[in-house]
Amino acid sequence: MTAAVTEVAVTGVGVVLPGLNEPGGLPHGPVAGAAPVDPAALIGKKGLRFKDRATQLGLCMAKAALTDAGLLGPRGLLVPGDRVGVVVSSNLGNADTVCRAVATIAEENTGALSPMDTPNASSNIIASEIAIRFGLRGPNLTVCNGVTSGLDALRWARLTLRSGRADHMVVAGVEPDNDITRRLTGARMVDGGAAVVVGRTDAVGAAGPRLLLGPSLRTEKLPDCAARLADAASGPARDAAAGLWLGAGPSAVPPGAESADLSGWGECSGALGLLQCATAVAWADSGRTEPVYALLGGADGEASGTVWTPPERAV
């Protein structure tokens, strides 16, 4: 089976959640009694000091996804680093550093600040630290786009790959849980997330495709996005009932279709789109061949959506 045009596919996945490190368990919801993720236990203590929580979690999931994609071995990257880029989706990653700093200045002065916090004041810290740790010299992006960020990050990764700026992109969605993020969102945060590696199917060193990424849709309202997604499916998948719907309200899921609910993991914000994608990879890995429809959007706000297809269905 050869595609006429270069496709973009997920080739690796990494899940970093309390009590869960593989995508298959995502639809079952949180693991009872699980302790918070311990990054040092996952990737070792070296290099974690002074990094904020979101960056530590991001490094863990990037390592897991790169390893799963066969791009990272015990001695480092197995493909040229200038052809591998990074997209991180995070809305609240450095909110704690920023708020703590401004409170310290108000209570004392700048002399009381820790200089080690300096890099964390910049919102692109997670993506740049992933690049530094694994030697990824391709395009390096941080998407902070509210509720749709995770699916948007995948959109930009796919665009960057199709335009030839890179062969592989690590796409990570991560949000930390702390007092500041809880007060800001009014909810317990996911304190973790997921990463995938997406690549051009013609790229050197690419593992077998696990899930094909379709084009992205953007609409003014969430229900329009759901309707257009159902229409966008082609061929045998035209019957939208045969598939998995993620992020759609019950009324938007076509009768007979399956759906999964990831809301039990806490407020996921920028991590949600990547948790959806990881769920879709598990769906395809389990042998399901029907497409996965993913949606993100606020009640009255704009929405992003896409269709992911298990590779067996690709024509």
């Binding site: 910049s122 919102s123 692109n124 390096n140 941080t142 998407v143 509210g146 509720v147 706000g301 704009e302």
Partner: peptide
């Protein structure tokens, strides 16, 4: 509120732009 961290909502209000994207990149 948290949705005020990025510029999407403001661009939507002022210009009706619903395909707006905020990238943090130093």
């Amino acid at each position: 509120t948290a949705d005020g961290l990025d510029f999407g909502p403001a661009l939507r209000r002022r210009f009706g732009a619903y395909d707006a994207h905020t990238f943090a990149g130093a």
